[in-house]
Write a protein that binds this DNA or RNA. Sequence first.
DNA 1: GTGCAATTTGCATAGATTTGCATTTAATAG
DNA 2: CTATTAAATGCAAATCTATGCAAATTGCAC
Lengths: 249, 249
Amino acid sequence: MLKEERQQLILEKLSTDKKVTLVELGQLLKVSYDSVRRDVIELEDRGLLKKVHGGAIANSYLSMKASRGLGIANNEFGVISKKAQKLIENHSIILMDGGTTNFYLAEQLPKNLEITVVTNNPHLATALAEHPKIEVILLGGSFYKRYQITLGSKTMQDLEHINADLYFMGINSVHPQKGLAIRQYEESLLKRKMMSVSRKTVACVIEEKLNRIENYKVCDLNDLDYLVTSLHPTDKTLAQFHQSRVEIL
Amino acid sequence: MLKEERQQLILEKLSTDKKVTLVELGQLLKVSYDSVRRDVIELEDRGLLKKVHGGAIANSYLSMKASRGLGIANNEFGVISKKAQKLIENHSIILMDGGTTNFYLAEQLPKNLEITVVTNNPHLATALAEHPKIEVILLGGSFYKRYQITLGSKTMQDLEHINADLYFMGINSVHPQKGLAIRQYEESLLKRKMMSVSRKTVACVIEEKLNRIENYKVCDLNDLDYLVTSLHPTDKTLAQFHQSRVEIL
DNA sequence: GTGCAATTTGCATAGATTTGCATTTAATAG
DNA sequence: CTATTAAATGCAAATCTATGCAAATTGCAC
């Protein structure tokens, strides 16, 4: 079996199962543990999946595509985008950055909505081509392959000229005390900048990101205007979050 | 068995199986391992498959083309990108805009090439994520959905800070007297700007775009440094083009 | 046919990759 | 803290690649 073939199969497996252990892969592909690990490292370098201790999980954009193929498979995103849509007013300027949730939200926006979307996420720009009345402004800068967004001082500079009404922040972790954080330092700077040029900021997060703590803090929970989850606002998981001034939807 | 016959069989095998090892091919075609490897190298040079360690896998682009009912005989894009690649020097700054030819060229770039690609084409940026050593700078601005590129004064402004070595211009028509032209006014302005910030400009065009005349002129043939087509430079179709200072590859 | 050049083919060799295993180091769970 | 599991590292065997070379084949002119 060819190396490329194996790697292809790993990606296919991931796009259906979202996650695999290296042991599983070794048995499935009938090669040693070491070989699959090396494959996974290579694939991670190419930004096609994320390696975790003991296995690998699907890269957001790939899994997004896969789950769309399966139709309504992942309902959590559906619930979140319904709620988030209520925050969007016609003729407003919306700032959106990277992340699966934002991608899904953008796709689900009503076709007749007339807004301007400013983004550093090329995937979002192309996805919004389906919405004839939405104007898309792409932020320039160095393209950061791993997270498929533009980043860096050029992107920051571009933001100077923007005054957005609402910022949909993609985020990796939300914690009642520790605030919002992500895995990438440069990205955390950018997100702070984006907050500063937006009148209001909203974070749309799936359940698994609640109560986690990632490496680079973006802001406190109090700095956020809205928090959108798939849970009911009175759900006990969210109890601690109500102590802040953030409005929970 | 003739060489051509063998190569045809290799492609057929690939189009059904998607992958094949060189050992398999050697047995199947009853020639030495070396011969099939040489065949595979040739086919790869013509852009008809992807060679990997130990075998070959079907070229995604090819299968896409095949599914559209187009023959594989004249892979124009493959020929063009091979020629165009010769113009690209390591560590150079390349400017590329929209168009199918540029997209294909980007995909076909050698994996070990260390260059910086500046583009207003988000698809190009994501496609180049596969090339670990290529740095990608995305030009910001209004996203023009129809042609899937960024455009407008912001994009123009971004270009002020660029000094590129080579500009690969996507173009709709090339005519010996009437010069290069496209269908979109704003885009023609942008292309002129791109030319002005690049040391040299090259146009890669498929045959059907030669001798056509589109609405908005970008420049004269004389302003171009290289013209790359799938034809042999001495082909009679190109006779008129030789009267200009442009170098034809 | 003969002679000659260009191409193609198979083989030998040297250099690279890939692979699985053993060992050491690090991370995780109980 | 300890036991367990995974990750990283080094290494050797196997496999694949690239290259040069000579034999075989082909094409072409005479």
